[in-house]
Write a protein that binds this DNA or RNA. Sequence first.
DNA 1: TTCTTTTTACGAAAAGCTTCGTATTATTGA
DNA 2: TCAATAATACGAAGCTTTTCGTAAAAAGAA
Lengths: 133, 133
Amino acid sequence: MENTAPLKPTETELEILQILWQHGPSTVRFVNEEQSKTKETGYTTTLKLLQIMHEKNLVSRDEESRSHVYRAAVTEEETQQHLLGRFLDTAFRGSAMKLVMQALGNHRTTPDELNQIRHLLKKLEDDSSNADS
Amino acid sequence: MENTAPLKPTETELEILQILWQHGPSTVRFVNEEQSKTKETGYTTTLKLLQIMHEKNLVSRDEESRSHVYRAAVTEEETQQHLLGRFLDTAFRGSAMKLVMQALGNHRTTPDELNQIRHLLKKLEDDSSNADS
DNA sequence: TTCTTTTTACGAAAAGCTTCGTATTATTGA
DNA sequence: TCAATAATACGAAGCTTTTCGTAAAAAGAA
């Protein structure tokens, strides 16, 4: 076996994963068009990236039809979780608190979202009160 | 003028900034020793990095004494804020909510910290109720 | 079939980041 | 003064990531 994905996508790889997560399995053509919406990108550039990501097991592909169809091989959540961990360490020296405070303080959050967070807080509190059960 | 810092430190530059933020103005020697605690690093490697960072205006330096003393030219908060913004976009497609939820959900947070966040939430709520004043 | 278009494969250039070797300059102390 | 030590400056090698050119294969249209 040499199967497990590295789960440490580069910036550009992440952009592509976002497209796949958002739109589901896609052809190179489609991914390239999406990419080009934000930044002029050559077709073979996108192709190459997807091929590399395939080698790394970040995506899988269906070669049935002529135009291969690529799909994310890692989930958005697990990737975010992993990136978040790294980011927390490098940028916030591990303090989830500081990160949360800054994120809440400096980015528009709707009242509804604040409520969701409030619920989560309550849940966390409940969990911790009957900790080692 | 061509003065303003780029504020987009690389991974290694960020490590060095962390050391400067944590310990204040430091010599190359000191920074190198700190760095070496986590990862064997050549002296000239650290030196070169600091010189590059100086050119980029990420750090300033005092050349009075023989051993130059470097100090961070950007604050920890503004840098974190900037990095957070980027990270939010690339990893969480802009949803501060999702990021906060994941950060709270997956990293041990003490009851006291939860309280602090609760206070912040209350403050945010108050602010939004008398919005455009 | 034959020409055109679309796609994949692949190698290598381009760009950015990190590391290191070497030269030079300054400092110290015997 | 002179050797040994410690610092800076600088270029370039080594890596990783990204971009692109070109060739070959496949599909479709005339």
